[in-house]
Amino acid sequence: MFQNVRIERIGEAMKLLSRPEELILLSIWRLQDDAYCIPIRSQVSEITGEDWSLGSVYMPLERLTKKRLIGSFLSDKTPERGGRHKRIYFLTDDGKKALVRIREVESKMWDGIPVHTLETK
């Protein structure tokens, strides 16, 4: 019973996903095992061509965690980082579903629209 309730809520939450959240969610999926703050930031910066600050990565990560779309764990201490942990993020089932939904909605919205018609001269 609880399961149903949660799915319903996540459906709602998905609607409220902001663009940065969406991008970071996707980026975590892309990075898979190495998804911690630094690579996420560089990847997103690279793709969007803008310099994302650390804070602008942390905040969506926190929000996504609250919405239970992602989870995280602390990696073992590594010598390269001066003996500090990494916090590695991964997608939960809900996160994966949310990505699928977004993809579906997106493609449905783009269906039948030729991209070249949008190009301006």
């Binding site: 911690y36 703050c37 630094i38 930031r41 560089s42 650390l54 942390y58 602390l74 390269e80 980082r81 001066g82 500090r84 942990h85 990494k86 916090r87």
Partner: peptide, 16 residues
């Protein structure tokens, strides 16, 4: 509570 991880991130970024 995982301030060490955050500082680790910052350090790594700084070195980069």
């Amino acid at each position: 509570n995982d301030r060490n991880a955050v500082i680790g991130d910052i350090e790594e970024e700084y070195n980069a």
